[in-house]
Nucleic acid binder design. Structure first.
Length: 465
RNA sequence: GGACCGAUGGCGAAGUUGGCUAACGCGGCGAUCUGCAAAAUCGUCAAUCGCAGGUUCGAUUCCUGCUCGGUCCUCCA
């Protein structure tokens, strides 16, 4: 079954056909590095990481680019607050971005370009637009002449006549038209700046993505993604810039993820309910956060709350107990062929997982395929005797699905310290002699230390709480 | 004012190109297993699919209106 992607441009699910067979060129708008990333930023980071992983898992060579906006008003403001420079603020939060996203199990993109490292390309891009009459200089700023790009508004399906301008941001009177947007901003005295044909200044927000997409991926790419708020104006402006300059479609598929709400409220600075990932990772595992993010469809809103976290934890525990069970049984498994029912369950899980991922990356349903396999595995493991081949088949399929989702803890069974080993041995002896009091005492002791003991027919099994 | 989403059991969340028992997970309860647990399994609990109309033999699914919540309308993921 072919992969289908919901394309914001056409507002429909479309069959995915890459420009070059076997290769996917994908760009996702990255963060402005003026602070730690928050839970809302984490959604596209995690979701598109899964898109990338899935595409790779079905054999595509994925060229994945995520940019850093490392110069803009917010960085300038932050640098002033911190009494430091824009590059230092940027370096700090780029570093934090890598730490936090790696903490979330996100694989690095093929390239993470920065605005300040692509200034030549950006200036060239703007010059090209000016030469084509698509941009004009006015008072040291350069603006895009939207009137010259007839398709402006096609992505967001906005009717220019009906947009209300100046609702959020005052209209700059130097613009020919209110819908024109800035490509180059003249520097105010003392601000960080670069030389350009229009004087000292820095790029506007939208131009960086056009320039970097073109440089790192080419004139037309396969997938362009980001949060739904970027649809307009950001992506609309990117299209105007790129397509205005090259005359070709910028991207064949446009994907936008929904927002994360906090306790059923929108997350906003004024409400002060932002949650940063750095702090979150101190209190919960990355798997929980990933599971939570993937438990809803990417285009739907997601509500973050303590209860949601608890549910994610509980759900994940079911999967992890199953995997732990498999590992435990592996030690005492019999030789022999794989059980037909197991092979069948594995086949079904694989098939359903792909079918659902192919349906516009329906991760909640893909997770259902994981749970179906958990159930089949648990059922099988209720048997007294199991074969190595069956368990390995299950293990491989779980690994394959998790290679896409990244929701399972991959840390190897860490060893217990000697004292605890000693207690477990003592407890085994106590149980043998039916000294239940001592056995329970030891179990409680270990529970307090975060070690949960389970007595199984195949010997004792422990796990960390 | 315009554009666009969402509303499904106690909770989270799929799905429905209109039609068989509305997935899956969390949670609750009971049972089996266990020395007792844990895990697991089995059973069970719970949905007039936001409201009101319409189209249709038939609507949770399509259409219209409404209510509530959310997003965007020029540098917020």
């Amino acid at each position: 079954m072919a992969l289908k992607i919901y394309n914001t441009m056409t507002r429909a699910k479309e069959e995915f056909n890459p420009i070059e067979p076997g290769k996917v060129k994908m760009y996702v708008c990255g963060p402005t590095v003026y602070d730690y990333i928050h839970i809302g930023n984490a959604r596209p980071v995690i979701f598109f990481d899964v898109v990338r992983r899935y595409l790779e898992s079905v054999g595509y060579d994925v060229h994945y680019v995520v940019n850093f906006t490392d110069v803009d008003d917010k960085l300038i403001k932050k640098a002033a607050e911190m009494g430091t420079t824009v590059p230092e603020v940027a370096d700090l939060f780029v570093q934090k971005y890598y730490e936090d996203t790696q903490g979330l199990g996100v694989r690095q993109a093929t390239v993470h370009p920065r605005v300040t490292e692509n200034m030549t390309e950006i200036i060239d891009f703007i010059s090209g637009l000016v030469e084509k009459g698509l941009a004009y200089e006015s008072g040291g700023d350069v603006f895009y002449r939207t009137a010259k790009f007839a398709e402006y508004g096609k992505l967001s399906h906005q009717n220019m006549e009906e947009l209300q301008f100046g609702i959020r941001v005052d209209v700059d009177e130097r613009k020919e038209n209110p819908q024109d947007f800035v490509l180059w901003k003249a520097a105010k005295p003392g601000e960080i700046s670069w030389s350009s044909p229009w004087g000292e200044g820095r790029p506007g927000w939208h131009i960086e993505c056009s320039a970097m997409v073109r440089k790192y991926l080419g004139e037309t790419i396969d997938i362009h993604g980001g949060g739904q708020d970027l649809t307009f104006p950001h992506h609309e402006c990117e299209i105007a810039q790129s397509e205005g300059l090259t005359g070709h479609a910028m991207s064949n598929y446009w994907m936008h993820n929904g927002f994360v709400n906090i306790n059923n409220e929108k997350m906003s600075k004024s409400l002060g309910n932002g949650i940063n990932v750095h702090q979150l990772l101190q209190t919960m595992s990355p798997q929980i956060i990933r599971y939570f993010m993937l438990s809803g469809h990417y285009r739907n809103p997601l509500n973050f709350s303590d209860e949601a976290v608890e549910q994610a934890k509980g759900s994940l525990a079911r999967i992890e107990n199953c995997i732990a069970g498999i590992k435990h049984r592996l030690k005492t498994a019999d030789a022999g062929e794989a059980e037909p029912s197991v092979a069948e369950a594995v086949r079904t899980a694989k098939e359903n997982f792909e079918t659902k991922m192919n349906d516009d990356f329906n991760t909640p349903d893909a997770i259902t395929a994981v749970f179906d396999l958990v159930h089949a595995a648990n059922l099988y493991m209720n048997k007294d005797r199991v074969t190595l081949a069956s368990l390995q088949l299950l293990e491989q399929q779980f690994a394959a699905m998790d290679d896409v989702l990244g929701i399972l803890s991959r840390t190897e069974e860490s060893l217990l310290d000697e004292e605890i080993e000693q207690l477990i041995t003592e407890r085994t002896e106590a149980r043998r002699t039916k000294n239940w009091a001592r056995a329970d005492e030891i179990r409680n002791l270990l529970t307090e230390r975060g070690i949960v003991l389970e007595d199984t027919a195949q010997g004792i099994r422990w796990r960390r709480k």
